[in-house]
Amino acid sequence: MSFAGMGGRRGRVTQAGLHLGLIVACLAVLMPIVWVTRVAVVPASMSYSPGLLPQVSSENFEALFAGRFPRSYLNSLIVAAGSVILAMPFAVTLGYAFARFGTAGRVGRFSVLATQMLPPVALVLPAFAILRSLHLTDSLFGLTLVYAALNLPFLTWIMMGFFRGIPVDLEWAAMTDGATAAQAFRIVVLPTALPGIAAAGVLGFILSWNEFLFALVLSGPRTATIPVALAGLQTSNGVQIGTVAAGVVLAVLPLIVASRFIQRFIVEGLTFGAVK
């Protein structure tokens, strides 16, 4: 492969340098993933031994499933999906109002993001106090509620961006065609924004899935999510590195699926409304 204007010896040297740089960068990104996978699939006793795959064993996964991990996995799924489902209707309607009617003005729209600008540590104690007064600590619903609140501002902004990309002509056309404003939103705008809603939903899911601090403070052993459960494997008897690695591999799986999904939808979302 060669780029126009980069022929000749000098061009080849530049190419080689470029590829070398890219290979190093790829390795830097991929090595941790490769190594975690490797540690997960070799017996615990060989976690630190040399060689890529001295022996393959499911020992680490068995150890993981013998403990509370399956429960935590389910908790994470419930909390992450639940928070998105809870926040999305508000994000969609608020984002639409912001985009189409300029509701709340510039200052209002920005102040929605205020909680995103604070360090999470500043929010975790008030959140704890509120949940305790509602008897919702150590409860999946409580954690879902908090994640929904944390996700709402940024989901709203993402939705606002998508709605801005949908031409107002579409609604006008629907309204002259006989639809009410609400029908125009429901029948025309919402389906057009669906790729955006899906993309925002997946982003919200990933954020909740990875969240550690709030889960640590607000959950108990029964309601721990994956990040908390994995942190729990660093015991006083040392870190059970093989089991942690197995947990990480399983925790990353939904994210890989989600990122493929989101890629497709974001690209589709960018081109979908553009009927000109």
């Binding site: 006008w172 056309a173 309204m175 002259t176 065609d177 006989g178 009410t180 057009t192 669906l194």
Partner: peptide, 30 residues
């Protein structure tokens, strides 16, 4: 009066076709 109560049809510069609907559904929407 609301647009729907005026019984006028508008053709927009951008055409404003409903992107998620087929041509059939677009034409039949009104």
């Amino acid at each position: 009066l609301r647009p729907r109560d005026r019984n006028l049809a508008v053709v927009f510069q951008s055409y404003a076709l409903y992107p998620t609907m087929t041509v059939r559904a677009n034409i039949g929407f009104g």
